[in-house]
Structure formats: C-alpha cells, structure tokens
C-alpha cells in the first residue's frame, strides 16, 4: 500500500530551483533513504512533505489525515519546558488523548534513552540529548509517516548506532523517510534509495537494484601471484576481471556461484590466499552515480 505519492514536486525561490520534478512513492512500513550532498534539496523536500513549505508545482498525495512525525536537522526547543512537558504538548497537539499523552511521553522518552532527564528543563540539554528529544517528539504520537532530516549526523558513533537500532525497531509499522550523508548507516535500513543532486532525483530503487545496476557484487579470488591468476582465467570461460593477483567474478544469474568457484578451486592445486564475497558499498555506488550523471 502506498502511504505517500510524490509527483513532479518542484520548489523554486525566485530564480533558484531548490527541488525539481521529484517523483517517488513511499510504501507502507518501508524505510527510504534520501541521499545527496549538501544543497541537494533534501531538507526542502522533507519540509514540503511535512507541510511546512508549499510546493511551487507538483503534487504530494497522502492518505487523508495521515499522522506525521518530523525531526528537523537541528531541532529547537522551548528551553523553559521540561522534556516531558514538551513531548506531552507535542503529543496532545497531534491528537493523542490527554490520558494517553502522558503515558506515551514517558514511554517514548525512555525509549530514546532520556529516562534520567524526563523532568529536566530542555535548556540544560546537550546536543546529543536534544537530538534524542527531537526523535522522541517525532514518534510520541505514533505517526504513520516519519520524516527525519539527518537524524544521526550530529551524533557520535555510539549514539549513531543506538539511534539506528531504535529506528530499525520502529520500521515494522512506520513508514520512514530520512535524509543522510552517512552512507554506511543508511545501508542497514533501506528498502528504497533516493539519490539527489542539485534538486533532482538522479537514481532511485531498492538497495539491491541500485547495487546491481551500478556495482554488482563479485567473488574475489586472491592468488599467490599474478601468473596463477592469469592461468585461472585462461582455464575458465567465466566472465571476469583480473587485477594483478586478484580475479574478480561478478555475481549474476548466468555467472558462477560461490559454490561453483569453491568447487573448481578445490580441484585445482594452485596457490590461493583467499576467496571472498565482495559487495560494493553504498558510498562507492553513490560516488559512481554522481560521477555518471
């Protein structure tokens, strides 16, 4: 089921085009990573989906009365409210009933790891705590659609890991769209990839499809020296690439499987250092896509 359909979404400020002809679909309970360099139009796109900005042209079709949670890149809070006071207010404005709101706020603050700061004023919070509170206010009303602008880039590696795990646990019943430039983390939680540059979508698809298209995984055989490698290549008809003592066999439907390779190698008495399954990282793919366009 589609939660959001975006059609030819465009935003211009005077002569400047921030987002141009953006089209994509968010399916229910999927995670979509919006990836692109600074100034690609990620924040503008998210702001339009959050109904903060109105598009210059194009359409955003959403389920009627869909509940949305939004985490800006740098969430700002009323410093004189306590964490619980703010999440409760946020929940109630989003329509959670009065009795539920308190309970849900406490649970959510515990969930994001702020259990020791529930009654502290936000003015005294560190940057990391504010980021966590930002996530808390975005999910306290159990939204169907969660929009996150760089949710982890302000965190240290431990915090990053922790928040990614929290987000993954929400994924079962929440549709998530998040922007990031930390591609290693994105790789773990992506059903769909949207690559943006200069306001345009330059590639989209599932992680698997995008990888297949731009950098198929391959089996890498490392020989003792390049002579063995060349010998191996001449003995077999598999499509492959040789890099000194390395032989790279792309994984495809017609190509060999790991099993095939291991079987063949076990029958040949050659000096083999290792056989590995190699997967292109999202970062490599992204650089490749950006370079191609």
């Amino acid at each position: 089921m589609n939660i959001v359909e975006v059609e030819n979404l465009t935003k211009r400020y005077g002569g400047e085009t921030a987002v141009e002809e953006l089209s994509f679909i968010l399916e229910k309970a999927t995670a979509t990573a919006l990836i692109g360099p600074n100034g690609a139009g990620k924040t503008t796109s998210l702001s339009m989906l959050a109904n903060l900005l109105s598009p210059t042209s194009g359409k955003i079709i959403m389920k009627k009365d869909i509940s949305i949670g939004f985490l800006p890149q740098y969430p700002q809070f009323f410093p004189w409210l306590t964490a619980i006071e703010f999440t409760e207010l946020a929940a109630k404005i989003s329509g959670v009933d009065i009795k539920q709101a308190r309970l849900q706020s406490i649970k959510t603050l515990e969930f994001v790891g702020l259990e020791n700061a529930i009654h502290k004023k936000v003015g005294s919070f560190s940057g990391g705590m504010k980021q966590r509170l930002g996530l808390a206010q975005a999910i306290v009303h159990r939204p169907e659609l969660l929009l996150l602008d760089e949710p982890i880039s302000a965190l240290d590696p431990t915090g990053r890991r922790e928040i990614m795990n929290l987000l993954k646990s929400l994924q079962q019943d929440t549709t998530i769209l998040y922007s990031t430039h930390i591609l290693n983390d994105a790789e773990e939680m992506t059903d769909q990839l949207l690559f943006m540059r200069d306001g345009r979508l330059i590639e989209q698809g599932s992680l698997k499809d995008v990888k297949k298209k731009h950098a198929a995984p391959y089996i890498q055989i490392k020989f003792g020296n390049s002579t063995y490698a060349l010998e191996f290549v001449s003995n077999h008809t598999w499509k492959c690439e040789v890099k000194e003592n390395l032989v790279l066999l792309p994984v495809s439907e017609t190509g060999p499987t790991m099993q095939d390779v291991l079987y063949v190698l076990s029958t040949e008495k050659q000096d083999i250092i290792g056989v590995e399954f190699q997967d292109a990282s999202l970062e490599e793919i992204f650089l490749k896509v950006v370079a191609n366009k």
Partner: peptide, 13 residues
C-alpha cells in the same frame, strides 16, 4: 526566528 515554532507547525495546529 529561533525555530522553536517548527515542532509545533509540523503538527495539525
């Protein structure tokens, strides 16, 4: 100006 309004404005306010 400070951005504190953002987290209210994204809700059905």
């Amino acid at each position: 100006k400070s951005g504190t309004a953002t987290l209210l404005y994204v809700r059905p306010l």
